[in-house]
Design a protein around this nucleic acid. Structure first.
Lengths: 208, 208
DNA sequence: CGGCACACGTGAATC
DNA sequence: TGATTCACGTGTGCC
């Protein structure tokens, strides 16, 4: 609330920041007057900038970004890590499960669930469609839908008919749900707003 | 510009009040009262705690922790995400049957018990079809084919028309190849020999 | 104008 | 002790 000694160096506090930008400089020592110096001012500055840089690089690693917010960056990173972990689990299960089911009796009940569960699952799936722009006409989509027979094929057909061009898609099914994650580019050769794309996808899903 | 100390505020606050600095903008007056000021104090507090919570949950996801530091938490998360991404890539490559130079220092157990694998060359996409029985009329298929536009859809259609009933399929694309892994059951209501199923699948692939 | 998000400088705490 | 990390309240833009 108050600046003690600093008195808000009106003169030498040439503070210029754009939004989310950095400050230029603040001078402390000088003049005849007393010094309002803090010991760890520079150290604290470096610490802040370092943390900010780490956050930036973290954001660059996460493909799905909902907001530039400091908190949401971490939130997205959390969900992305969880997705990656589950992907690793599915992949290694499939890699190890190519032989007979000898091992997975105890450490993994996954085989039993997959075989027995099948189509008798109750539909507790919460559908979800997330669209986030990457750059230009590239997008990242994540679709969670209830697994129904032939639905994935129809979904792909519908998306193709609407001009969606999927690159490197990944599809997994788990607990009676489809999870489709993919990069998409070139919708009608031009970029639509994110929310319109999402609405379009929702419509497609609704029809399939 | 501020010293605080929670409870100490009220003591020191008043005596610092008299120190008057000119600020261009709004001044939080009511100095006469003993009440301190700041409007978004609570909001800022919630924001800080929220971010701290997110950071904590992020740290809980990362298995390796070098330090409890705020910056190192993010740093560890960054390296962990990179590890996960490369792990996913290695696993899908192994599922695709592509021999990559294993330079990994991964602590993960890598079972190289890749099945029969009658692949021929490695310069291009190695088409591969592996069928292994599970029990009864259930079996496990792994299909690696060259990625062409719309081919996966046609493949699924053809398989469906032949009575293949896929359960929990997983599809990934990498390096211009499709990898389809799935459990299949109930071909024509009765079990065919494994090699005949494989021949049937090869024929389907050849036509798509 | 208010909510929101951020960078800032500072005192305290830890090693 | 000094170096380093943290929480805090505030000023200040941006919707």
């Amino acid at each position: 609330m108050e600046f003690i000694g600093s008195a808000l160096d009106e003169l030498y506090l040439t503070q210029q920041r754009n939004y989310r930008g950095r400050i230029s400089r603040t001078r402390q020592y000088n003049d005849d007057s007393k010094e309002y110096k803090s010991k760890n001012l520079d150290a604290e500055r470096r610490r802040r900038q370092k943390l900010s840089d780490r956050l930036l690089t973290l954001r660059s690693l996460v493909p799905i970004i909902t907001n530039m917010n400091k908190a949401t960056i971490i939130e997205d990173a959390i969900t992305y890590i969880q997705e990656l972990q589950s992907t690793v689990k599915v992949l290694s299960d499939q890699l190890l499960g190519m032989d007979v089911s000898i091992e997975e009796e105890k450490n993994k009940k996954q085989s039993d669930e997959e075989v027995s569960a099948e189509e008798t699952k109750q539909s507790d799936i919460k559908e979800d469609v997330v669209v986030s722009g990457i750059d230009g006409d590239k997008f990242w989509v994540k679709i969670v839908i209830e697994k129904r027979r032939g639905r994935f094929t129809r979904l792909l057909e519908a998306m193709a008919s609407y001009g969606f061009n999927l690159s490197d898609p990944s599809v997994t099914t788990s607990n009676g749900a489809f999870l489709v994650t993919s990069q998409v580019e070139g919708i009608y050769g031009d970029s639509l707003p994110i929310h319109q794309i999402r609405e379009l996808l929702l419509g497609i899903i609704r029809e399939t």
